[in-house]
Computed example of a mutant assay.
Amino acid sequence: MDVTFKKKKDVFEGEVALKSSDLEESHEKFSGKIEDCVMDDKIITIAPECVRCNLCVEECPVDAIEDSKSTKPARILDNCVKCEICAQTCPVNCIHVIESTAHVNDDEVKYHLKDIKVPHRKLQMQEINVNPEKCVSCATCVKFCPTGAITVPEGEIAQIDKEACIGCGACVNVCPEGSIELIRELGPVIKTKELLVDQDTCVQCQVCEENCPVDAIKLEGDKVVLDQEKCILCEVCSRKCPVGALKLEMM
């Protein structure tokens, strides 16, 4: 996806005023002018094609994804730190990382949205079996299997084609009786970025340490020390650093 669309600036200002008035305790009309600017952001979203495997939920390092159910897909929560691990993990590419840019000028607001390609971790089924004592032949697993590897012949338990199974675990997650057992191999997260630390620019304010969601960065003396094993390359410290001493760059 690579999309650009525009909106008249006065329309945008009217929408902002309307939303602001809803938040104000007083009934005074909000009036504010939006100055020309450029704003960049990154959005992570889960498409309706989610197969309910919950791999993204299991792998999210900050618990920022709400569990999927057979009745609804997984959902990104507000505490997402945009580390992209979920997108690398999704077995069916339904988690999208989107770069968004908004240009505000004299007459209009122009938005640009672009899908970012994210590499995928290794995922492989090692063993999968159906417990005949528990399976009730409801075929819920069939509905969500992304490769069509499961069938439920009339009067029989679920049958799994192990050659077609990719080990995503959707069937395990949605089975109401817990009748499917899966062993799979999930490869390591692929590092596509690196966090650069400018020790000379750092002012030892400890903002990075206080805000790191996984305790991967510490201030020891007058030096910033980064634990590479813990760091999830999530942009939190680099965005919050007041002097630009931390920069997250593509490798």
Rank of each mutant, 00 (worst) to 15 (best):
R184W: 04
V224P: 06
P213T: 09
I183Q: 14
D40G: 12
M251A: 12
C37H: 11
K143P: 03
K191T: 14
E99N: 15
G167K: 04
G32M: 01
K6H: 05
G148Y: 04
C212P: 12
S100E: 15
T140L: 13
L55A: 08
F12C: 00
C83W: 10
T140K: 07
V172M: 04
P153H: 00
S238V: 03
P188Y: 07
C168P: 09
C50R: 02
D161Q: 08
K110A: 07
C237H: 11
K9N: 00
E28S: 06
E235S: 15
K134G: 08
P153I: 01
C37S: 15
V81Y: 10
C60Q: 06
G178Q: 14
P61E: 06
K247F: 03
E49M: 01
E49A: 09
D107F: 02
M125Y: 02
T201M: 14
H96Q: 11
A74E: 07
Q88V: 05
Q228T: 13
N54R: 02
K223S: 12
N173H: 15
M251W: 08
N105K: 07
A64K: 02
P132E: 13
A170Y: 05
K8G: 09
A216G: 13
R52P: 04
D78V: 14
C60A: 05
C138F: 04
V51D: 12
E156A: 03
C241F: 02
D215R: 06
C94G: 07
A47G: 01
E15M: 04
V172G: 07
P61R: 00
C212Q: 11
L219F: 03
N93Q: 14
E229Y: 07
C135T: 09
I95T: 11
V62D: 09
L182V: 04
G187D: 05
E177C: 11
D41Y: 08
K29Q: 02
V152P: 05
K33H: 10
K218Y: 11
N211K: 15
K223I: 06
D40V: 10
